[in-house]
């Protein structure tokens, strides 16, 4: 039996008609569950989504950018999220390059889920290929230190004011980059790379 992906999706789009329309077409496919819709980024930021979010459909025209801007940095709390632009007016290409893909509002609604799945899959492939040789980010190092100190995911989440889901996705990335899966292995990594000293453990 084919397994449904169950991508948890958030839509950020000012027009209620378009918001509803995308939601309707997307949820015709069992692969998607739209967990929340927001009219703009401000509302999204003010009401953190409790669930893990895998896909964000975001209309870049809903925020004013006066200079080229890394849109992705707005979604820091969701490091692994697949970011897709909802497009029906002009957006400069420099802003668009930070998205994983683009959804054209004039597309046929019935192919919409397929389009989005394609974008998600190619983004995942890109991540797997490029993340290999990249050093741990500062955030990942902080999380790793907490792991080495023997903290649970819940404790780490509380300490860093992030959700447990975010902790888990950071940990997945740490493992992908270092190749180390076990907690004791990560502890050795942390000590050998001078992130923690052995005395404080």
């Amino acid at each position: 039996m084919k397994q449904h992906k169950n991508y948890r999706t958030v839509i950020i789009e000012p027009s209620p008609v378009i918001q509803e329309g995308i939601k309707l077409f997307l949820e015709k496919s069992p692969d998607f569950r739209v967990t929340a819709c927001f009219a703009d980024l401000q509302l999204f930021k003010s009401k953190p989504v409790k669930d893990d979010v895998q896909v964000v459909l975001f209309n870049p025209a809903s925020v004013k950018f006066y200079r080229p801007f890394n849109v992705r940095s707005l979604f820091d709390a969701y490091p692994d999220v697949c970011l897709i632009a909802i497009l029906y007016q002009y957006v400069d290409s420099e802003t668009l390059q930070h998205f994983d893909g683009v959804l054209d509002i004039y597309d046929d609604g019935s192919v919409l889920p397929q389009r989005v799945i394609k974008i998600i899959e190619s983004a995942q492939k890109r991540n797997d290929l490029t993340a290999d040789n990249i050093d741990l980010s500062e955030r990942e190092k902080e999380i790793l230190i907490s792991v080495a100190r023997g903290m649970t995911n819940k404790e780490i989440a509380d300490q860093h004011f992030i959700s447990v889901h975010t902790v888990i996705s950071h940990r997945k990335n740490i493992t992908r980059k270092t190749g180390i899966k076990t907690v004791s292995g990560l502890t050795i990594y942390a000590i050998f790379n001078n992130l923690v000293s052995q005395d404080e453990l």
Binding site: G179, I180, K181, T182, S184, G185, I188, Y189, F192
Partner: peptide
């Protein structure tokens, strides 16, 4: 097997 794989990675990548 996970611990062995960790050892491999540590020895190959992170020893002085």
């Amino acid at each position: 097997d996970a611990a062995l794989e960790d050892l491999k990675n540590i020895i190959i990548k992170y020893l002085p």
